[in-house]
């Protein structure tokens, strides 16, 4: 199990529904200051906008771990956006496994609380969480 510092050596990509944090543009800064380019945040109009290709592209671009944050089930403004996001994430996971990437590299977080959380605390919690995954094999230098 790696240390927190090592975990913070990883690149995290966060896709999140804009309804989670209306002040995301302001709140994200705290975490970006402490983590720099190691964490990249992408608000999307609805988590249902996430497509497997977003996740694959993120991994291609160097993400070690991709999180998709959706609003609580039943709270989606589009009614089923977060349900669709869930299916798409698991489809992406299937593809990743086929390629040989651990499916744990992408994770869907369905927020349990009401909306109105701050993105920086969410990101901090998730980055601080213990994981078994290390640096992505895609980020290793070519031999």
């Amino acid at each position: 199990m790696e240390t927190k510092e090592e975990r913070q050596g990883l690149n995290f990509y966060f896709f999140f529904c804009q309804r989670i944090d209306k002040e995301q543009e302001k709140n994200r800064r705290t975490i970006e200051k402490s983590m720099g380019d190691k964490v990249r945040l992408f608000p999307i109009p609805c988590s249902g906008r996430i497509e497997p290709i977003h996740i694959l592209r993120a991994l291609e671009k160097g993400a070690d771990k991709v999180y998709v944050l959706t609003c609580r089930e039943g709270l989606c403004r589009y009614r089923e956006g977060n349900l669709r996001a869930k299916k798409r994430v698991s489809y992406a996971q299937k593809l990743m496994e086929e390629i040989g990437l651990e499916k744990e590299r992408v994770e869907l977080i369905n927020l349990k609380k009401e909306n109105g959380m701050t993105i920086d605390t969410l990101v901090e919690d998730l980055v601080g969480k213990k994981t078994n995954i290390g640096s992505s094999p895609l980020n290793k230098p070519l031999l």
């Binding site: 497509e51 497997p52 290709i53 694959l56 592209r57 991994l59 291609e60 593809l95 086929e98 390629i99 040989g100 990437l101 094999p137 895609l138 070519l142 031999l143």
Partner: peptide, 21 residues
């Protein structure tokens, strides 16, 4: 189109993991 993008991305990554470009 979408499946093409996914497969292409998957193949690129797979090759990269095997040290091929």
């Amino acid at each position: 189109e979408k499946e093409v993008a996914l497969l292409a991305s998957a193949l690129r990554m797979e090759a990269r993991m095997e040290n091929r470009v």
